[in-house]
Design a protein around this nucleic acid. Structure first.
Lengths: 331, 331
DNA sequence: TTGAAAGCGCTAACAA
DNA sequence: TTGTTAGCGCTTTCAA
């Protein structure tokens, strides 16, 4: 593979000039730039990234560590990040932590080792290994979930309020025994959605009982089991707040198997506006989160922090939007 | 950030010994290994990746360039690749080409610059810039779609056969005017699915007419328009073969708006077994592709090629499976 | 405006 | 088994 010295030789200049010419540095004779370009093209020259990054002590790369590549909420965030990062010449590498603290930790180590310019991550929540980033001074931004230590920029959705509104909507529709299927204990969004659900029951003067609450992985299978359990209880719920769209799949399956019709028999609101939400019968009421915007905001914050790591940390909270459809109406 | 020389100083050994100890090289006194480990821990030492990669002339990274991060088919491939790569200590960086030859090209350049060990990609199909990889001797494997030049390993699904079987199934169910909504001209899977559709019509002695065929982006919006057009024709189709699950969303929407019931009014089979396929009414018949397996096979082929780039190129073709559900039955 | 040369941090060849 | 040292390819002072 061609090296910079070969380009220099072919163009009849020094390697320093090649470097300057190719990196668009101010002061190079235009004629030399042309000669260098031509030589580089002829040789199919591609700069050696590791060498460049070693010398520069930083790579124009941001790492995005998300907890589930198969969750459209996170892939939408990824698009937001990409679009902003690419505008300013950064590459984005996507890493899938799978809601697993070990994998998260591993990817953080890799990000540090590769000397990426910054990291955006949705922390798994447990013993966040993010401390390493802080001590090393690597710029980073948390998305979707705050960090326990909270020493950084973070982009959140007011998910507790959204859960409260969704639950209040179910109350207003006349449902009486409203249940909740949410994510694992310790995952902040899961906790917040549960808290919002309880907030709403409280202001409606409903008793909230743990019998109507289930916590499970943010996946279809867990939610499926949880819904089955709830439905088979002596006093089953007549409505459910479901904490994400993968879970909604499991819940809808369970309802189907149980011969229970959403809306009429069991009111339903789920987080995340999946593309298929309008296709099921009745259409699924959802809490739509501004995922793409989370990504763009996070990327801009990260770029600002890369430029100046002394900025005070900020918290950006975006709103979610309840979209009422048939699954939360008795009619 | 701590350097290897600091670890060496603290442990009272040379940098070479630190390097050997930390990389698990055969011959180091166990006692020294312990001392080095301790020193490294104390300093929070993380090796400098660019320096290591520069020296080694290769990074233990494989780049996976897929055409749509939001398509579950590709994210499932990504999981397969990850699982295999991680087993042998490689990291995977995921890049989203967005079905855009420029972005694909850009990511290929980056992969070359970063000296990744190998590349797995679903080529956009046009003027594949993959040639660069070949000339540079970077290992790579194509997935989902073959390359025009075809000088490499490739993992495919027999999508033409699958399309043929799906169409034959619609014929067998008594549908007469079967249409097809497929992806853009030049995208191989789109072409193949159309060809399989035509194969089936031919063996069933049905006339195939371009009036019942539409080509569009592999997205919901395009398929939605296409379905509307088809339905508003004088002689609308009474069945449709749809080339992926994002498109199926658009088509189902169009049918809903048109007051047309899948199965009874318009038979429907779509590619890709989305998690929601069983939730719509009637459940959607699909062609399930072995996406995860594509990923694992591709990753293993890539590893083999990294180890030995002189292997003859292979083509692996996996089968797809037709899952008949309500949307392709008149009853 | 250009070139010579140092040096980023690591690994591996060679020497001891 | 361990240490010394060269050098991976680039960018960037410093000098001309």
């Amino acid at each position: 593979m061609a090296r910079i010295s070969e380009v220099a030789a072919l163009a009849g200049v020094s390697t320093a000039t090649v470097s300057r010419a190719l990196n668009g540095k101010s002061t190079v004779d235009p004629e030399l730039v042309a000669r260098v370009r031509k030589a580089a093209d002829e040789l199919g020259y591609q700069p050696n990234g590791p060498a460049r990054n070693l010398r520069r002590q930083e790579a124009a790369v941001v790492a995005l560590i998300i907890s589930d590549v198969e969750n459209p909420f996170f892939t939408a965030i990824a698009r937001g990040v990409e679009d902003v990062a690419h505008e300013v010449g950064y590459s984005v590498v996507l890493c899938n932590s799978d809601e697993n603290a070990d994998k998260e930790n591993r990817y953080i180590d890799i990000a540090i080792q590769e000397r990426v310019a910054g990291v955006i991550l949705s922390p798994t929540g447990t013993t966040s290994s993010v401390g390493k980033l802080v001590t090393r001074g690597t710029a980073f931004v948390a998305v979707d979930r705050p960090l326990p230590e909270q020493e950084s920029d973070v982009v959140l959705v007011d998910t507790r309020l959204a859960a409260r509104q969704a639950t209040a909507h179910l109350v207003a529709q006349g449902y009486n025994r409203i249940g909740c299927i949410t994510g694992p204990l310790g995952v902040r969004t899961a906790d917040d959605r549960l808290a919002g659900y309880r907030d709403a029951l409280k202001s409606a003067k409903r008793r909230s009982t743990t019998k109507l609450v289930r916590r499970t992985e943010y996946k279809a299978a867990g939610a499926h089991r949880a819904a089955q359990e709830l439905l088979n209880q002596e006093e089953p719920p007549d409505a459910l707040l479901v904490a994400n769209s993968a879970m909604a799949v499991g819940v809808l399956q369970a309802l189907q198997e149980h011969g229970t019709r959403p809306g009429r028999d069991v009111g339903l609101v789920a987080f995340d506006d999946a593309p298929w939400a309008e296709l099921v019968d009745p259409p699924l009421s959802v809490v739509a989160q501004p995922a793409y915007e989370i990504g763009t905001v996070a990327a801009r914050l990260l770029l600002a922090r890369i430029a100046d790591n002394t900025r005070p940390p900020t918290t950006t909270t975006l709103g979610a939007r309840l979209i009422e459809r048939g699954s939360s109406h008795r009619g």
